[in-house]
Amino acid sequence: MHKLITLAAALTTAFAAQAHAEELTGTLKKIKDSGTIVVGVRDASQPFSYLIGNKQYVGYSVDLCNKLVDAVQKSLKLKTLEVVYQPVTSSTRIPLMQNGTIDLECGSTTNSMERQKQVAFGVNMFLVNVRTAVRADSGIKSIADLNGKAVVTTTGTTSDRYIKQHESGQKIDVKNLYGKDHDESFLMLETGRAAAFVMDDTLLFGKIANARNPKDFAVVGEVLSSEPYGIMLRKDDPQFKKLVDESLTKLYKSDEIQKIYSKWFTSPIPPKNINLNMPMSDKLKQQFANPTDKGV
C-alpha cells in the first residue's frame, strides 16, 4: 500500500510537471518561444534604472530584474536567454506593456490601484516617501512654513494634493508651479522661483547630491505620502506573476537584498560616484519581511 501511494505520488508529480511544461501561457510562453525576454528600463531614474556610458542600463531595479531573468531562464530550462533592454518613459511604459513590447518593467513605477486596472505588479520592491526639498538658508522647517509660498513639483504629481492631504497642511495655501522634468523643477528651486520642491525623497536626494553645492539644500518636514514601487508585469498572467513573486520573495528574505540595497543607496554609484546616503527605512524592512503587491 505504501509503495502504491509513493508510486501514485511520483506519477502525479510527473504528470503535473508534464502538464506544466505543456501549458505554458502568456509571457512565459512568449519568452520560451522567442528565446528572448524584453526588459523595460528608464534612461534617467537614478538610482533605480538609468543609462551609463551609452549602452549599459544599471540600477537597483535593474539588478532585481536581472535576478528575475535568471529565475525565468532556470524555470524554463533554457540554455540561453537573450535579454533585450527597451527604454521606456513614464508615458510609454503602460502601453508598451499592454501591447506586448516589454515583458518586465524595471524602473521607478508606483504600484497604484489605478494602474492595477491595466497592469500587474510583482511584490513591492521599494517604498518612497514624498517629502520637501528647500534651500538650507530658507528657514523652512515644516509644511506649515510653506504657507503663501511657491511650491514646485514635476508634471504628473501634484504637490498641492499631497500638501492638502497632509493634516498639518490643511490650513495653508500654496502657489503651485510645475516643472517639465525633475531637472527643471530643481532649477526652479535653485533659482528661487520656488521655495520648495515636493517629490519622492530618492529623487530629491539624488538631485541634491548632484547640485553644485549640495550643502545649500536640505530635505525637511513631514512625509507627505508613502508609495510602493513595483516591477510591472502584464495583467492576467498568473503563471508569470507567480514566478516573479516567488523569486522576489525569496530574494527579499535572503541577505542578498541588503547587498543590492546598499550597493545603490548607501555607497557611491556611477557615473559620478555620488553617495545618496539613504539607509533602509523601517517601513521598507517590514515590507521585505512581509512582501505584498498591495498598491496605493
Binding site: 503602460i94 489605478e114 508634471t155 504628473g156 508651479l177 510645475y178 516643472g179 517639465k180 527643471e184 526652479m188
Partner: peptide
C-alpha cells in the same frame, strides 16, 4: 509653454495620461 509649467492643453493632456492611464 508646458515646458515652463503653463497648465495649457498639452500639459493637461500629460497630467490626464499620468493619472488616468487612458492614453
Amino acid at each position: 509653454a508646458l515646458a515652463i509649467g503653463l497648465t495649457e492643453l498639452t500639459f493637461q493632456m500629460k497630467q490626464m495620461v499620468e493619472y488616468s492611464n487612458q492614453v
